[in-house]
Design a protein around this nucleic acid. Structure first.
Length: 737
RNA sequence: GCCACCGUAGCUCAGUCGGCAGAGCGACGCUUUCGUAAAGCGUAGGUCCUCGGUUCAAGUCCGAGCGGUGGCUCCA
């Protein structure tokens, strides 16, 4: 007999080998029907699995039944649905290799190694096959075998990737579990739903490429995404919310509201800020400039290009070469010589090709080409070419502002009394992001950071870091962005991409952690996400469909000061090295405004709205008075337009409402008589839709009311997205499947 | 960059089997002069992404390129 303790505290006895389903049945048949899985001693397991397999010690086994109402059960359902999809695809295609098939926040995917491309056109037949499997409602049966047996078993099934995974990823496990459903068998940790009939709604959503184990050097797989629910209504609701979420996409709203434009005629990833978008940006810049002045920052400006040597010193070049625009060479042959150097270093240049390159370089006026060709070794050749290169001018479109600011720090001797020095600039940088990464304003190739670099003594680091964190928080709060996550991005101790000693890194990381802890902010730590020069505290925000993006960042840097030999004279009259803090509260203006558009669903608060007020004359006869009202509001500093169409006032109101204008002024003869306006608020009263008629009031009263709202930077409404994406389980867990 | 899909009027989109290029909204004109979410009528607007191929004939079929979307990888 086994003792089972239920969540309400009661302890009952059951026969050995009883399953959660048996327990459910003993309580009631309807409960048994609703039971999807169980949680035994805190682990989610199959409802059909004997409970005593999971007993720990002598005490009663803690059991809670997971029914269709539990979020954890939904995860189990979706993973089982991934198996159903894989089974369907194996029936429809030959030679399907199975990789991983985990759940995600909103559904599941399964990766397949399959030569035939799966396209969206295949979805209906995949879904039809899945429907058959669901209808058959066969059970998921669990069984285990030893590692050796498992490898042989998978090899017999022609499941190479599973074999590889057993031998590498699962090397620590002696016994491995499999699940069988009809003819389909898969290495899988589980758990699963009792039978496929529990899947009441599912949909194959998309197909994409993915790399085996997430490594771009591995073979590429086809990843098919889908989702599943316990009821058709739930799925319908989810899909509707997803559609709704896409309507607040900043690219859609940016076009609709005339905020920005990205045109191929200008270039991929190069944004054009149209007047309305530029107004939002300018207001944000003005807002933060004021705050920076108050916090002791000094404005600086730097050019858009800088010598390559400077970025070699900083380490940005050639480390990030692949994601930078090619250098600008002062000499015609510069690019060619550069290419020659790289190919020589790679060692795959044929003699014939090299002679051709040398000849062309010579022709273009590169005096060293002959010498380089005659050099006895690759090193010597590269040396000759490098020496020549360095006598030529080479510029880089700046990928970061820090080297420029470092040079400003260096432009004069510094005393400890001068520190901290805080240099701030809206610095525009250019990065050659791979084309597949570009995404509206959220990922662009030319971006402006609200950047600043703080140079301080080691003793000042904590206070300065704390102040910058406070600044980022202040900035986000002022626009009502409270749904963010803070991530402490640390180095990956097993990687060599970072500069500086382990001691410096440990020191920097623990300083960041300490200040974050002291500030009482919630944060998670993440290895391998640091910048190459130092750890960061990143502020992460989700876009309309739940993808996470980094906005604000505060970075601690002991390395660039060393690389550039920065110093200040201390109280001891000896030189010391300052510490640098890089920080950008918005991150970039592009990404921040992009996120802000989605945050507000295009409906900016009054202080940020590009068009704050629209005057809607009741008839053309009221146009003259409308002009007078516009003049007055303009003089008071408002951005105000007049709808001059001869349409009915209802139509004008409707359009202003759809254009998300915060306030409308309805003006007609009645208003003119009393030197008044009729104010309409875009925001509806609680529980109503549409806007609110605030009634007729003297112009002065309307001006005062709106001025107060602007000056307070009031955020009256953030249209909450109905769409929620769920946290995904971490990778390690996913790969257990 | 990789995989899949997509590219038609300013916007959103339809276009069947290869056979005259379409709708709604917007813009413009005329009529209407209206008080809190859409007045009526009319007009203009096209390199069907680009280049090449197949064909009597290509928006439609084929190839290449450019661009976009979703995902992967990357992200100073």
């Amino acid at each position: 007999m086994i003792q089972v303790k239920l969540p309400d505290g009661t302890v009952k006895e059951y026969a050995d080998g009883s399953t959660a389903l048996d327990v459910a049945m003993s309580i009631g048949e309807r409960l048994a029907q609703a039971t999807i899985a169980a949680e035994v001693n805190g682990t989610v397991v199959d409802a059909m699995r004997p409970i005593d397999e999971l007993a720990e010690g002598d005490g009663p086994i803690e059991l809670s039944l997971l029914t269709t109402r539990d979020a954890k059960a939904l995860g189990v359902l979706r993973h089982s649905c991934a198996h159903v999809m894989a089974r369907a695809i194996m029936r429809l295609f030959d030679g399907v290799g199975l990789a991983f098939g985990p759940t995600t926040g909103n559904g599941f995917y399964y990766d397949f190694d399959l030569a035939t491309p799966i396209s969206e056109d295949d979805f209906p037949k995949i879904e039809a096959e899945m429907q058959k499997i669901v209808k058959e409602a066969e059970p998921f049966e669990r069984f285990s075998m030893t590692r050796d047996e498992a490898v042989t078993f998978c090899r017999d099934l022609n499941q190479e990737l599973k074999c590889e995974h057993i031998e590498t990823g699962l090397a620590d496990y002696d016994s491995l579990s499999f699940y069988r459903q009809g003819e389909f068998v898969d290495l899988c940790r589980g758990p699963h739903i009792p039978d496929a009939g529990r899947i009441k709604a599912f949909k194959v959503l998309s197909v994409a490429g993915a790399y085996w184990k997430g490594d771009a050097s591995n073979r590429s797989l086809q990843r098919v995404y889908g989702t599943a629910f316990f009821s058709k209504d739930d799925q319908k609701e989810y899909l509707a919310q997803l559609e709704e979420a896409k309507r607040r996409d900043h690219r859609v709203l940016g076009k609709q509201l005339g905020l920005f434009n990205i045109s191929n005629d200008v270039g991929q990833g190069l944004s054009l800020w149209l007047p309305k978008g530029a107004t939002v940006r300018a207001l944000l810049e003005e807002f933060i400039k004021k705050e920076l002045m108050a916090r002791g920052y000094q404005p600086v400006y730097s050019p858009h290009i800088g010598r390559v040597e400077m970025y070699e010193t900083s380490g940005h070049f050639p480390y990030y070469r692949e994601s930078q625009f090619a250098p600008i060479f002062g000499h015609d042959a510069g690019q060619l010589v550069d290419y020659w150097i790289r190919r020589s270093q790679e060692g795959d240049l044929s003699t014939e090709d090299e002679q051709q390159i040398a000849h062309t370089a010579e022709l273009m006026g590169c005096g060293c080409a002959c010498d380089a060709l005659k050099a006895p070794s690759v090193d010597d050749k590269v040396n000759v070419l490098h020496t020549w290169e360095k006598t030529q001018e080479r510029y880089l479109l700046k990928p970061m502002n820090c080297p420029h600011h470092v040079q400003m720090y260096k432009s004069q001797p510094r005393s400890y009394r001068d520190l901290p020095v805080r240099l701030a600039e809206f610095g525009t940088v250019y990065r050659h992001e791979a084309s597949g990464q570009l995404n509206g304003l959220l990922r662009v190739r030319g971006l402006t950071q609200d950047d600043a670099h703080l140079f301080c003594t080691p003793e000042q680091v904590e206070a300065e870091f704390k102040d910058t964190l406070d600044l980022v928080k202040f900035v986000l709060e002022s626009v009502g962005l409270d749904d963010y996550r803070i991530q402490l991005s640390k180095r990956d101790p097993n990687s060599d991409k970072y500069v500086g000693s382990d001691e410096l890194w440990d020191n920097a990381e623990s300083t960041l952690r300490r200040v974050l802890e002291e500030s009482g902010l919630n944060f998670t730590e993440c290895e391998g996400e640091a910048a190459f020069y130092g750890p960061k505290a990143d502020f992460m925000v989700k876009d309309c469909i739940g993808r996470e993006w980094q906005l604000g960042t505060v970075q601690l840097d002991y390395n660039l000061p060393a690389r550039f030999d920065l110093e200040y004279i201390g109280a001891d009259n000896k030189p010391h090295q300052p510490v640098m803090i890089h920080r950008a509260p918005f991150g970039s203006m592009e990404r921040f405004v992009g996120m802000l558009i989605e945050h507000f669903a295009g409906a900016f608060p009054l202080w940020l709205a590009p068009e704050q007020i629209r005057i809607c004359p009741v008839t053309d006869k009221a146009l003259d008075y409308a002009e007078k009202v516009q003049q007055r509001f303009r003089r008071e500093g408002f951005r105000v337009t007049i709808d001059r169409r001869s349409a009915k006032v209802n139509a004008k109101i409707r359009d202003a409402q759809l254009d998300l204008i915060p306030y409308m002024l309805i003006v007609g003869p009645k208003d003119e008589e009393q030197n008044a306006v009729s104010l309409r608020d875009r925001i509806a009263k609680e529980g109503e839709t549409g806007g609110t008629d605030l009634g007729m009031m003297p112009i002065d009263a309307a001006v005062a009311r709106l001025k107060e709202e602007v000056n307070a930077l009031r955020v009256r409404q953030v249209v909450k997205s109905q769409f929620r994406s769920f946290e995904t389980t971490d990778d390690e867990e996913q790969h257990e499947y």
